[in-house]
Design a protein around this nucleic acid. Structure first.
Lengths: 307, 307
DNA sequence: TCGATCATGCAACAGTATTGCACGATTCGG
DNA sequence: CCGAATCGTGCAATACTGTTGCATGATCGA
């Protein structure tokens, strides 16, 4: 509704080079170049200028971006208002697209989807699994309406007026140990009790790696990284083989067949990762989106409740 | 920048039938039908519904129109802000398109254009002659930036938030009489002194016809219409031939060679037609448009001054 | 009831946007 | 200091969205 070329401009402002922006948007550099050129021509104002071998926004470009955000927000509000009063017409029903990182997509979103479908009969609910940073791209591109992401991630734009973010719940971390481990029988342990263990982490630089290091630092030690794993499943396999211990979010379900034990952590604060929701600014006025957020909340407390 | 389909919807709301809207927009009915359909699909809301053999807006359509106007206004403001701070880049210079009814296009706009061109070197200034009602269409379609119209015209949407209208000046009306007429030598006359004359007017229903009748009614008589003329020039020819008298705005210049005399009118109020300017709401923040309005004002007082 | 007016759907078409590739400019590593 | 890599841009070919023209069914006025 609002000129999509503004999205292109915004991505360019973030990444700094036209090529990277194009890649992220699924266009070719040539296309992005033309879009910006035509936008600039339509406005009669120069909005980008070469800086090194990349492009930066001119003052006009920055102002354009800054001010136009209000348009997007306002538009989402209007959409919401429209949905609200269009009682019962099902020209194409409602449509809701939920996106989230893998764990969320597997555990949180399916029950949410079916609950929303019950509240809005005839609505079409889609689930998209995507990396957290990708999620926000999906939001702006209108390929998704609600995002569920991990707060710790590198690029959840903070204070970005494009989005409204809200804390959903804290996903507590459990200590994952082999079946025969000295801590396996304990009802709960503090993180520092595992300070001397060998640790299985994601590779350095990854969001999860940072999360674990931060938690351990808060407990007063540096984990010794013995092995790397990206997926919970491989991590569990390594733990099961006695190669070390790991932290795993309560939400992450493991396949059967691993000889491992989840030991709840206690402490103050209790180690956890923060899950939050994101929507396009203003889109919360759309009934189906508002209701999705509500359902998400009840679903997540329900999942987090069992200890 | 804002979705142009909203313009289509607005015109439809005004005229009531898709075919008429299409005709006014220069599209075929088929195209308009598809535009509305795609808009409706994108929104997931029914925005028009059949009423008789025309279409009317649903409640959602009305709200959409009402609320989206703010977007257009805001966008114009942003444009203005951009133009303001883009100091000295001439990527395509500024561009200004003035539109006005025939007399204005002939007398008011040319000096305005050249004055603006001096203030904004390298700016490209265009003049478009158009009927007053057409002028507003040109504004919304972004084919023109400033309109100069006669207030008396049938469809200058009053209180329409799409436009900002401002009184420019009062164009006094002169009495046009043949050279040897009994009033020809007078320095000024009241309108009622010509009550018994034969009158040359535009055809009934035209804006000018209404204007003259209103003026005469204020002076206490009904003009007897002897002949019809659409253009000032033919009217002057008829007057010159002794077939009657006419009212002609001070602004309207007549070609040489007619044996006619302009006699200024006096009275309270002095018979005149009101000229006003129109711009898209918010676009007044664009420096070149603001300056055009300013220049227009000084140009018109200058033209109206000589007696 | 007949004729006129209207909105809509479908296939053909036109115009716009995108792609792929080549070129010139800039930067970084050795 | 130089070569390789990366970047943005322009041009012709292509793909696509949006428009046209016409036929159809529906509604209204006389």
């Amino acid at each position: 509704m609002i000129d999509p070329r503004l999205h292109v401009l915004r991505v360019l402002a973030e990444v700094g080079t036209l090529t990277a922006a194009a890649h992220r948007l699924g266009y070719t550099p040539s296309a992005v170049s033309h879009q910006l050129k035509s936008l600039s021509k339509d406005l009669g104002v120069r909005i980008v200028e070469p800086r090194g071998r990349g492009l930066i926004l001119t003052r006009a470009g920055e102002v354009l971006l800054e001010r136009s955000q209000e348009l997007f927000t306002r538009w989402e509000e209007i959409r919401g208002e429209l949905d609200g009063l269009d009682s019962g017409s099902d020209i194409r029903s409602r449509r809701l697209r939920l996106c989230g990182f893998s764990t969320a997509a597997a555990t949180l979103l399916p029950p949410t989807a079916s609950a929303v479908k019950e509240l809005f009969p005839g609505a079409e609910v889609t689930i998209i699994e995507a990396e957290p940073e990708e999620c926000f791209d999906l939001l702006v591109a209108e390929h998704a309406d609600v995002a569920v992401v991990v707060a710790t991630d590198p690029l959840p734009p903070r204070g970005d007026t494009r989005f409204e973010q809200a804390a959903l719940f804290s996903d507590r971390l459990d200590l994952l140990v082999p079946a025969g481990h000295r801590l396996a029988r304990r009802a709960a342990v503090t993180l520092s009790e595992a300070a001397e263990e060998s640790w299985i982490l994601d590779r350095a630089g990854s969001p999860y790696h940072r999360l674990v290091r931060t938690a351990c630092a808060a407990a007063g030690f540096q984990p010794e990284q013995a092995h790397q794993s990206r997926e919970w499943e491989t991590g569990a396999a390594l733990v099961s083989a006695g190669l070390g211990v790991a932290l795993i979010p309560r939400l992450a379900r493991l396949p059967d067949g691993f000889d491992v034990v989840r030991v709840p952590l206690r402490g103050d604060p209790v180690p956890s990762r923060k899950i939050l929701t994101g929507i396009r600014s203003g889109s919360g006025s759309q009934p189906i989106i508002a209701s999705a957020l509500k359902v998400l909340e009840s679903v997540s407390t329900e999942l987090a409740q069992p200890e």
